[in-house]
Amino acid sequence: MSVVAWGQLQYVLAAVLLLIGLYGMLVRTNLVRKLMAMNVMQVAVIVFFISLAVRAGGTPPIEVESPSAGSDVLYANPLPHALMLTAIVVSVSTTGVALALLIRIHRRFDTLDEADVLDRLRQ
């Protein structure tokens, strides 16, 4: 017996992405890789929310004028999509600020390795 039904696989994907992201942020010493791991973690949250919106057999949430379909058209929940658009904007802004900080770190220390940077700071 499988622990997870096939229909729930996207949640497993979200959990795996989240853990990959957290692992990368903890283990990598290169600051750019840490930042990339952070982005992977944020994608995990986005995958999770988008998965919530899915309805089996649902259409995109666009109002269609079809007389035959009547009032009960099954469509995907648009709210998580709207929320995640905002989350993507937040993620892009965070990445932008982080890259700006990395540029300053690189100009000053000529390296992006965390251990080297901390060594230089201690001197």
Partner: peptide, 17 residues
């Protein structure tokens, strides 16, 4: 200053988590 930049980068990662 550069100390602030390094400290803030780490704060940014943790704050985003």
């Amino acid at each position: 200053g550069e100390r602030a930049v390094v400290a803030t980068f780490r704060y940014l990662l943790i704050g985003t988590i």
